[in-house]
Nucleic acid binder design. Structure first.
Lengths: 172, 172
DNA sequence: TCAAAGTATATGCGTATGCATATATCAACC
DNA sequence: GGTTGATATATGCATACGCATATACTTTGA
């Protein structure tokens, strides 16, 4: 999906136990990225098809989930800055600002002033927002669990977690 | 980024060598998906920032690359159906149809009749399209190689390829 | 303390996207 | 062979997006 040119033997030599047995490091790196990208596309489609995204779209859910996830060490809800939310969502800052507009208009989040910085705005979940996240999430979570466990063993899941964490850490 | 609710210990217990040491299979599956999603977001941003996407946007490149990649076993260029292209790109069919419109207007691809099926349209790369892919791809390929090899060893890259392949196969 | 540079969010505007649906063709069945 | 349902792509329309920029505030440094 995304690599330099002339692949030809892209995944043609994967017959044996060791997939893509002997390749240049460049080809290996690009194949890995392409694999990640393709898996992402395939899984996104799968999860979009299953799950009920009538109340809340997948991208909106992504924001609501991030807000649910982010709690203080003590477990208190912790309204996030728009910029912070943007780190998790593949959207431009203006697009995210307007996504928050729409969520706010529907009463799912609220813009709160930041006591420490008057430029900033804290986005907080409302009760409805928390509820919407919970409903969409339960359906989605089942879907994710089913698909991921069908494809990978627990050990492989752990390996995938470790590898994606390394990628994040090396990039950010 | 995307999981069911009440995560709390999302990646908090990853202190030791074995990350996310003991978790329910459900939590494991959702963490793996979240990891994949976050890595995707982070890397996409990275590759968008590097690389020169002036002539061709990343999504356009994705289509051009797919066309470059798809060749007959003999190595002949193999114009793809729009539906086939859509499998690789996270776009709706109408959006892809119009993306092809724009690429065609710029002379990067051409719509060819399908001899076997008059409903279908084959999308073929033009010389300019191949050239545009090559130029964008060389810059992008360097970026991908640098980032991926900085984060993961060759063995880890191979593992990631294997895992993402399993995910695709189990899903599609 | 004030000016200049930096940061966080919002808005104007043109374009791309998704949903629903239209159009054209194929495939199957009678 | 003609009708019915499925498949491949295209178009109308409302909406969401990205880029450039504006606005508001903070930080730095003289």
């Amino acid at each position: 999906m995304m690599t330099t040119a002339t692949p030809k033997t892209l995944s043609a030599d994967a017959g044996a136990a060791s997939p893509t047995s002997r390749q240049s490091r460049t080809h290996l790196a690009n194949d890995a990225w392409e694999g990640l990208l393709t898996a992402h596309t395939t899984l996104m489609r799968q999860f979009a098809a299953e799950g009920s995204w009538n109340e809340v779209s997948m991208r909106e859910y992504d924001v609501l989930y991030t807000l649910t996830k982010c709690t203080t060490p003590a477990g208190q809800p912790n309204p996030q800055r728009i910029g912070e939310l943007g780190r998790n969502v593949l959207l431009s800052q203006p697009a995210l600002s307007r996504l928050v507009d729409r969520l706010e208009a529907r009463g799912l989040v609220e813009r709160l002033p930041d006591p420490a910085d008057a430029r900033s705005v804290r986005i907080g979940l409302t009760a409805s927002g928390r509820e919407a996240q919970r409903i969409a999430g339960s359906s989605h979570g089942v879907s994710v669990t089913r698909t991921m466990t069908a494809a990978l063993s627990p050990e492989e899941l752990r390996t995938l977690i470790a590898l994606t964490r390394k990628l994040q850490e090396a990039t950010s």
